[in-house]
């Protein structure tokens, strides 16, 4: 197998719990020992519920907020060893698009100025900046003639197109997309998703697609990693994750998603499962897990290969008829 475009090894991100309100602890592990690799040209989906650490992971692997422990390799080069200038040079290969274009675009700057900034940081001369900005806007379906306008003159969908254009203007090879359509209306979401699909094939991009929207990730991704409380609990091809998931949490997550093709929801009340603090030593999911046994509360399962590149961190993985 060729070198993956992105490789994350045992990444940890800890936040010191040192505020006046916090009890003294070793610090909060928002991301706890995450490893995965993304093949060039693929779409890698990262899913999980709020607070599972997926956005923290994205920021850490781009060194926007460097990891506490662990390594990130871009095409085999470890980012941790790079100087600030070296890192800046690498950023052009890995760009990120955030959920909220309003937060990503400065309201007081024209689109041209916003887009030129990143290019100027890379030392691109003015005339070339102008040319690349126009080309990138054209790619996402915004008229380059409108580059002098300000963010408020565009709709939400157009603003998200502009942030995508800005990311593309430096010719990245990897785009990290963090909930890029979650703030948009249904009819606009599809436009942006189609645009992302087009761009990926035209520009031979690799996507790391982060979302809580499981239907969307199932539609887009080649491989899916499921995060729970700072860990990856399962990782496999989209087909395996959808049809023969091994981790009880993955099954529960995907069974919960409303679908247009699904059944009507049954009015059955479940016990409240919001309680259940994870045990310190064992599996973090043990308290919520319907399969959990005593061993799960004392042994922390490692992510291991259950066969064919399908990884799972569970002591009692589900059995599948298809076999491992």
């Amino acid at each position: 197998m060729s070198t993956p475009i992105l490789e994350v090894r045992r990444l940890e991100k800890r936040y010191a719990a040192s505020g006046i309100l916090s009890r003294s602890r070793a610090g909060l592990k928002a991301v706890d020992g995450v490893s995965f690799a993304v093949e060039a040209g693929s779409t890698f989906g990262l899913v999980g519920e709020s607070g599972c650490g997926k956005t923290t992971l994205a920021r850490a692997l781009l060194y926007l907020d460097p990891p506490t422990v662990g390594e990130v390799l871009f095409e085999g080069t470890p980012l941790g060893g790079l100087s600030r200038a070296g890192l800046r040079g690498f950023r052009r290969h890995m760009q990120i698009v955030f959920q909220d274009p309003n937060g990503a675009l400065d309201p007081k700057m024209s689109v041209r100025a916003s887009m030129g900034e990143g290019l100027a940081n890379l030392g691109v001369p003015r005339a070339e900046r102008e040319r690349r900005t126009a080309a990138a806007l054209e790619l996402v379906g915004i008229q380059p003639a409108h580059a002098g306008r300000y963010p408020h003159e565009f709709s939400g969908g157009q603003k998200q197109r502009i942030t995508i254009a800005r990311a593309l203007s430096v010719d990245p090879r990897l785009l990290v997309l963090d909930e890029p359509v979650s703030n948009l209306d249904v009819s606009i979401q599809a436009q942006i998703i189609n645009l992302l699909l087009d761009l990926k094939s035209r520009l031979a991009l690799t996507y790391l697609f982060i979302s809580h929207d499981l239907n969307l990730v199932a539609y887009l991704a080649d491989r899916i990693a499921v995060m729970y409380r700072g860990r990856i609990v399962e990782l496999g091809s989209t087909a395996r994750i959808l049809d023969s998931a091994l981790h009880p949490y993955t099954r529960r997550l995907f069974a919960s998603v409303p679908r247009l093709t699904g059944e009507r929801i049954a009015p059955k009340m479940e016990g409240d499962s919001e309680a259940g603090d994870s045990s310190r030593k064992g599996c973090r999911y043990a308290a919520r897990c319907e399969r959990g046994e005593l061993a799960c509360h004392s042994n922390d399962p490692e992510l291991h290969d259950a066969g064919g590149g399908h990884l799972v961190a569970c002591l009692l993985p589900e059995k599948n008829d298809q076999g491992g």
């Binding site: 009819s187 599809a190 189609n194 239907n215 539609y219 959808l242």
Partner: peptide, 15 residues
């Protein structure tokens, strides 16, 4: 226009 696993590999019909 709704993305779902069953529509993989096809373009969504955007409005």
């Amino acid at each position: 226009s709704v993305p779902e696993a069953s529509r993989r590999g096809t373009r969504l019909a955007a409005i």
